[in-house]
Nucleic acid binder design. Structure first.
Length: 169
DNA sequence: CCAGACGTTGTT
DNA sequence: GTCTGG
DNA sequence: CCAGACGTTGTT
DNA sequence: GTCTGG
């Protein structure tokens, strides 16, 4: 899937480049996301993510993982956009919320990570009241997570090797 | 009515 | 497609 | 988030 | 400076 949700009504798919994150606080109302919240929820799997910590002028990339080392699921939304030649382009976005205790010193927002026991609820097609999903979109407990500094090589999305997850000495 | 936006982040 | 602003 | 582009014409 | 792409 393309990262950056392209709403079905988009005239130009480039709009997706701006629809990378949806705020949990407003996702139910925003025209670009609300239909997807009701009917097209998904899990975006990961074993870590990055946040940049500001200190002075410098920006330090940090990697956040589960202490267990296990992979986990972000709360995601998806869409399919159809162009004039009937090509179907699938796309997705993840939802963000306020930072937990672990993340707060680094950055004030973080992705919504779903606890295992809520993954099924998130995917349920018959949850029609988006308000019922509101409680699900909470910061994941920081105690289960860990953070370490990584190389600025991760700043360029073209670097996609093991060097971008290596712990900085 | 029509036109234009439709988003988050961080920075000022 | 739907809402907001002019 | 950060990096990288930001433009058109004509020629190969 | 602002937008697009990754």
């Amino acid at each position: 899937m393309r990262w950056g949700l392209i709403p079905h009504w988009a005239k130009d798919p480039k709009i997706g480049s701006r629809m990378i994150n949806a705020r949990a606080e407003t996702v139910a109302e925003k025209p670009a996301f609300r239909d997807a919240l009701r009917r097209r929820r998904c899990l975006v799997l990961a074993d870590g993510f990055y946040e940049w910590q500001r200190s002075g002028g410098a920006r330090r990339p940090m990697r956040i993982v589960m202490r267990s080392g296990e992979p986990f699921a972000f709360a995601g939304l998806w869409s399919v956009w159809t162009d004039q030649q009937s090509n179907r382009i699938p796309s997705c976005a993840i939802i963000t919320t306020e930072a937990n205790d672990l993340l707060r010193p680094i950055h004030y927002r973080m992705p919504v990570i779903l606890p295992r026991d809520l993954e099924d609820l998130w995917l349920e097609a018959n949850v029609d009241d988006p308000g019922a999903l509101g409680n699900v979109l909470a910061p994941y407990p920081g105690g289960a997570m860990g953070v370490y500094q990584v190389s600025p090589l991760v700043n360029s999305a073209t670097n996609d090797g093991p060097e971008v997850i290596a712990r900085l000495a």
